[in-house]
Amino acid sequence: MGFKLLSKLLVYLTASIMAIASPLAFSVDSSGEYPTVSEIPVGEVRLYQIADGVWSHIATQSFDGAVYPSNGLIVRDGDELLLIDTAWGAKNTAALLAEIEKQIGLPVTRAVSTHFHDDRVGGVDVLRAAGVATYASPSTRRLAEVEGNEIPTHSLEGLSSSGDAVRFGPVELFYPGAAHSTDNLIVYVPSASVLYGGCAIYELSRTSAGNVADADLAEWPTSIERIQQHYPEAQFVIPGHGLPGGLDLLKHTTNVVKAHTNRSVVE
């Protein structure tokens, strides 16, 4: 069995187990497998329904001669939608809004960016022009300005110390501490036991640490421990890039980060 097929099978099995364990909360999309990078042309966006009122959005972007996937989250909030992270750029984010209108038909009224990198804030200006209120932590807003990236308009308070959590509509926002970046936030959907790890969490097929220019490698494993301790009931975990899975993604990420750190020390 090929690795790609095995990865998709694991996603399907995880979703099936969740649907059985929580039949009222989960209505997993039966329309197909989780979209992969090879299936999404740059400039297009796919939506994948995880649970009743919960979707991931998947886009792709060219970077350094390669094409990478990027995940975000959409959560229903009454007759409105909360968006977590842009679709990595203005063109993708405009396509995301169009796809949401086509498939869901509810307005996106608020959006949260989970850290300051372009795959999370690139497209904020498109959201703002569409009347979406954009939010991020003060740290993310400051770092985005320093980096020359787009800056969300509103500040999220109460997320300055490791372990801080605040309720934001249908989700809980959690600051686990520094990891992929010093400002990275985690998003949890309690009604569906869905954990969105953003770039602080890796997919299972990833074996290298990737972009760690703004990471705190020493603190990252401790931050992941905080996530595990705060959300032990999480059933569906979405990484910032690639295929979702279960809580095993947290341990896998820790292993990859520690291996990278150990290699760096040896070198």
Rank of each mutant, 00 (worst) to 15 (best):
M1E: 05
G2Q: 15
G2S: 13
F3E: 07
L5V: 15
V11G: 07
T14N: 07
M18C: 14
P23G: 10
P23D: 11
A25L: 13
F26Y: 11
V28F: 06
D29N: 09
S30H: 10
S31L: 09
S31A: 11
G32F: 14
Y34H: 09
P35M: 09
V37I: 14
S38G: 10
P41K: 13
P41A: 14
V42N: 13
V42Q: 11
G43K: 06
G43T: 05
E44L: 09
E44G: 15
V45C: 03
Y48V: 15
Y48D: 08
I50C: 03
A51H: 08
D52P: 11
V54E: 02
H57M: 01
H57G: 03
I58H: 12
A59Y: 05
F63L: 07
V67D: 15
P69H: 12
S70G: 03
S70W: 01
L73I: 07
I74M: 05
V75A: 06
R76H: 08
D79E: 11
E80P: 02
L82C: 00
D85I: 00
A87D: 00
A87H: 00
G89T: 04
G89P: 05
K91M: 14
T93L: 00
L96Q: 01
L97W: 01
L97I: 07
E99W: 07
I100T: 07
E101M: 10
E101K: 14
G105S: 13
R110Q: 13
A111S: 14
A111G: 09
A111Q: 07
S113F: 05
T114C: 00
H115C: 00
F116H: 04
D118V: 08
D118E: 09
D119C: 01
V121C: 00
G122D: 10
G123I: 04
V124N: 03
D125V: 06
L127R: 02
A129T: 10
A130D: 07
A130M: 13
G131N: 13
V132M: 05
T134Y: 01
Y135I: 04
Y135V: 02
Y135E: 01
A136N: 04
S137G: 05
P138R: 08
S139I: 13
S139C: 04
S139D: 12
T140W: 02
R141P: 04
R141Q: 13
R142A: 13
R142L: 14
A144L: 14
V146S: 14
V146D: 13
V146A: 13
E147Y: 15
E147N: 15
G148S: 09
N149E: 09
E150A: 03
P152F: 02
L156K: 06
E157K: 10
E157H: 11
G158A: 08
G158H: 15
S160K: 13
G163D: 07
G163I: 04
V166Y: 08
G169K: 04
G169D: 06
P170M: 06
V171C: 02
E172V: 04
P176V: 01
G177D: 06
G177C: 04
H180D: 01
T182V: 12
D183F: 01
L185M: 08
Y188Q: 01
A192M: 09
V194I: 09
V194W: 00
L195K: 01
Y196Q: 00
G197L: 01
G197S: 03
G198S: 06
G198T: 07
C199F: 02
C199D: 02
A200D: 02
I201K: 04
S205L: 09
R206E: 07
T207I: 13
T207R: 13
T207H: 14
V212D: 07
D216K: 07
A218D: 14
E219P: 04
W220T: 00
W220L: 03
T222S: 13
I224Q: 02
I224H: 00
I224C: 02
I227Q: 02
Y231G: 01
P232W: 07
A234Y: 03
A234N: 00
Q235V: 10
I238E: 02
G240H: 07
G240C: 01
H241W: 01
H241I: 02
H241P: 04
G245D: 05
L247M: 12
L247R: 15
H252Y: 06
V257H: 06
A259V: 10
H260W: 05
R263M: 15
V265F: 08
